[in-house]
Design a protein around this nucleic acid. Sequence first.
DNA 1: AATTTATGTTAGCATGCACTTACTATATTA
DNA 2: TAATATAGTAAGTGCATGCTAACATAAATT
Lengths: 200, 200
Amino acid sequence: MNKQSDKKTRTKERLLEATLCLISEKGYLGATTREIAARAGVTEITLFRHFGSKERLFEEVLKKYTFLPRLKEIIPRVKDSPPEEALSEMALRFIETLKERKGMVKIMLSEMNVYPDKIRKVYEKFIEELVKTLSGYFDTLRDRGTIRDIDTYLASRAFLGMVFCYFQAEEITKSRTITRKEAERVVREFVDIFLKGIVG
Amino acid sequence: MNKQSDKKTRTKERLLEATLCLISEKGYLGATTREIAARAGVTEITLFRHFGSKERLFEEVLKKYTFLPRLKEIIPRVKDSPPEEALSEMALRFIETLKERKGMVKIMLSEMNVYPDKIRKVYEKFIEELVKTLSGYFDTLRDRGTIRDIDTYLASRAFLGMVFCYFQAEEITKSRTITRKEAERVVREFVDIFLKGIVG
DNA sequence: AATTTATGTTAGCATGCACTTACTATATTA
DNA sequence: TAATATAGTAAGTGCATGCTAACATAAATT
C-alpha cells in the first residue's frame, strides 16, 4: 500500500499545482476543470474523483499554498542585527517569497473580491499577522531607544506597503521580473528613507 | 432630435454604471449581460443594441471611468505649500479619489491579469504617470535644498506605495470604509515617517 | 490467482451563457 | 398623419461548462 498511495498523492499534487497555475492566469471562472486536468496530465474525471467539485479543489489550493508561515519565520532570524541590515534582509526575503508564491498572490488579489468568504479571511489574517510581527520588532527597537516614539503599527504598515506595492507594480501589473540587484538597490533606498526620512 | 437622444444617452450611462458596478463585484466573467441589463433597468437586447458585445461594453467602461486625470490635478494645486502640508493634502486626496473610484480600482486589480491588453496598459500608464508627477515635485524640493539627495523616483514610489497599500488593505481587502478622521491620522503618521524617518 | 486501487475512455446530461430573430409599443419628429 | 428612433417581449440558437454514468485497464496488494 505504498506505491499506490504515492501515485495518488502525486496526481493530487499535480492537480493542485495546475489549479494554482491556471486560476492565477485566468481567474476562478476562467479556469475550466477540463483544462486543469489536461495541464495536470490527467483526465477530467480523475479531478472530480479526487476533489468532488471545483470549489473544493479551489479551497484545497488555498490551504496548500498559504505562505504566511514562510514570511513570519524571516523576522526572528534577523531581529538582532542592526536595524538597517535587519530591515533590508526582511524586505529582500519578503520580495523573494512573494516572487516564489506569485501565483498565490495573484489569486488573492484578483479573486478576493469575488469569493469573499474563502479568500478574504485568508488574506486579512495574512496581512494582520504580518504587520503585527513587524510592529513587534519595532516595539523592541523603541524600547531599546533605537528609534523614536512612533506608532509602530502604522510604521509597520508603511514599510510593508512600500515594499509590497513595489512588488505588485513590477511583477504583477507590469509582469516584469525583479532581479536580485534591482531588489537590493530599491530596498536600500526604501530602508534609507524609512529610517532617516527624506528631509535633509 | 433632442429628447430621443437624451433617452438614449441615459440608457447608455445606466448600462455603463451597472457594468462597472457588477464587474467590480463579480469579475468580468461573473457579471452576466442579463444581470447588467436588469440592474440598469433595461432588457438584455437593449444592451446589445447599444454596445454590440460584452467585450465592447467592457472597453467603454474602462474608457469612461479612468481616474488618472483626477489624480494628476492634485499635485500642482498644493506644490507651493510646506512639504508636510503638501504631502498630507496629496495623500488625503489620493485616498479620496481611490474611494470614489473604488469600483474601477477593483476591476483593475482583479481583471488585469486576465485581460492584459485591455487593462494592463491603462494601469501601467496610470502608475508611471502618477509616480513621475510626484517625483517631479520631489525634484523641485531637492533643487531648493528642502530635502536631501535621494532617488526621487523611488521616493515617490515609496510614498505612493504606503498610501495605496493602506487603501487597498482597508477598503478592498477588508471591505471597510476609511473615515476622514482615520485617513488624517494615518496620513499624518505616514508623512511624519516619510519626512523624518523613524530613527530618533 | 484474485482483489483492490488509481486511472482512463467515451459519451452525455443539464445548465447557463453570449447573442439573435422577429415582431410590438411608444414617443418624438417632420 | 406618416415616418423615425428607441426600447420591449418572447422565444430560441449554439456553445461551453461543471459534473456524472458505465465500462475498461493496468498495476499493486493480498
